[in-house]
């Protein structure tokens, strides 16, 4: 029990601290790296709650894809983050208000649960305990059977996203030298090498 608590506080502290560093750090690359740290620790918290599928998804999708993409963007584009930060005080009231609203919502949610745990009604199909069916197993049982139709529909949506990105952005660029292997192979000594007679002490 104490080990669990220790790990919880370890993960939680690092998550909050690195979350703070994401907005406090001056260097955007460091911000992204702290974001990755926050994700990994959040994944640890999920793992401790028995939501191992969410934990793995968090690592694979957020750390593996989204954060790395962020890093690419930050490194490739010349975004002046110091300039973006300039309106900080100006936006503080609005941002603070949203923060307070969010805090209130969280307090309400947790408060309701503390006051009356029975208020959260059980769903139509009860969730089996983690010892019987784990998260991943439960998803695997329905994903290709009960939710087969949704799975295929989601696949079509991703296909549209891909086609859309190509339609809207792919351009035939002119003046690009492309490698043409058949052309390269067809070169002979006659077409590739030209023998010139070089006049003495004059060059070509």
């Amino acid at each position: 029990m104490t080990v669990t608590a220790a790990f919880f506080y370890l993960f939680a502290t690092i998550t909050v601290a690195s979350g703070f560093m994401v907005i406090a750090s001056r260097n955007p690359v460091q911000s992204v790296l702290f974001l990755i740290l926050a994700f990994v620790n959040a994944a640890g918290l999920f793992l401790m709650m028995g939501a191992e599928f969410l934990a793995m998804i968090l690592v694979i999708v957020y750390v593996g894809a989204v954060a790395v993409l962020f890093l690419f963007v930050v490194m490739m584009l010349d975004v002046d983050f110091a300039e973006l930060r300039q309106g900080f005080l100006q936006y503080l009231p609005v941002g603070g208000l949203i923060g307070i609203v969010f805090l209130l919502e969280l307090v309400l949610v947790i408060g309701t649960y503390v006051v009356d745990p029975g208020l959260i009604r059980t769903s139509a199909v009860p969730i089996p305990p983690a010892e019987v069916v784990t998260n991943t197993e439960a998803l695997g049982l329905v994903l290709y059977t009960r939710y087969f139709y949704f799975f295929q529909a989601a696949g079509l949506i991703l296909l549209v996203a891909m086609i859309g990105a190509i339609v809207l952005t792919l351009r035939e660029r002119v003046g690009v030298r492309r490698q043409d292997i058949s052309k390269q192979n067809a070169r002979t000594q006659e077409t590739a090498v030209e023998v010139r007679k070089v006049p003495f002490r004059q060059g070509i």
Binding site: Y149, F150, A153, A154, I157, V160, I163, G164, V167, L168
Partner: peptide, 30 residues
């Protein structure tokens, strides 16, 4: 899919498929 949707998930997925394609063809003359 939207016309035949009989639950909220099917409705949403059909609607997204319909809308995403529409966004792209609205900007087709890029």
């Amino acid at each position: 899919m939207v016309i035949s949707a009989n639950d909220l998930i099917a409705l949403y997925l059909g609607l997204e498929l319909l809308s995403l394609s529409s966004y792209v063809i609205a900007a087709f003359d890029r």
